Simulated scan of single mutants.
Amino acid sequence: MCTDIVTPEQRSRMMSRVKGKNTKPEMIVRSLCHQMGLRFRLHRRDLPGTPDLVFPKYNLCIFVHGCFWHRHIGCKYASMPKSRENFWLEKFDTNINRDHQNTNKLKLLDWRVDVIWECETKDTNQVKEKILRLTNTKPNKY
């Protein structure tokens, strides 16, 4: 087992600063949607899972997930920490199960649900194409 290079207190302080809203990947997606002329609502707390972007016109909820926290399968950013493996396995399983439950609840409410992964935001053209497909809109001069 590998030991951490920082103290548990330092690690705790570092992890407590990880944001859940307004992350860099989320801001990229929001900016692209705005450039494309799409209107959306942010973090609607009345919907299961508080989706990052909600497009009422398209009955669409988009989650912008971090590859590490939500375990993007096959992604290099979804690495496994070397210390406290049992803790992390439980944490990741909880996140994945919660994601599935929220997606199912939204679908029962007749919402369409999709995820844009953190690693996908590195290629803004790919994200634009995905958003165009999801909203079934034609590209404008963004």
Rank of each mutant, 00 (worst) to 15 (best):
V54Y: 01
N125Q: 13
N140G: 14
L89T: 13
C33R: 00
W69A: 01
R39D: 01
S12L: 10
C75T: 04
V6T: 11
Y58R: 08
K130H: 05
W117F: 04
R133H: 00
P81S: 08
L132H: 02
E90G: 06
D52Q: 02
R45W: 02
A78C: 07
L108T: 09
Q126I: 07
E118R: 11
H100G: 02
K82H: 13
C67I: 00
D110S: 15
P51W: 01
I5G: 03
S79W: 15
F55D: 07
K82W: 02
D123I: 12
C33N: 02
S79F: 15
G49K: 03
K21V: 09
L108K: 15
D99E: 02
L60R: 05
T135S: 03
C119H: 01
T124V: 13
F68R: 06
S12I: 00
C61L: 05
M15F: 09
G20K: 13
N97M: 12
M15H: 07
E120Y: 00
P51Y: 06
N136V: 08
N97T: 15
D46E: 07
K57M: 02
E129L: 09
G20S: 10
V6K: 14
L89D: 13
C75V: 03
T94Q: 15
Y77R: 15
V64H: 07
L134C: 03
P8R: 12
K19F: 00
D114H: 12
I28K: 14
R30L: 02
R84I: 01
N104A: 14
M14G: 02
V64N: 04
K91H: 13
S31I: 04
N86S: 13
P56Y: 06
E118I: 11
W88Q: 06
I116S: 02
H34F: 14
R11S: 09
V127R: 09
H43Q: 13
V18R: 09
C67W: 03
K19R: 15
E9I: 08
W69C: 07
C61N: 11
R44N: 11
L132T: 03
C2K: 14
V29N: 12
I62Y: 02
K105W: 03
I73G: 03
R44M: 14
P8C: 09
E26C: 08
R11W: 05
V113M: 04
Y58Q: 10
L60K: 05
T103A: 06
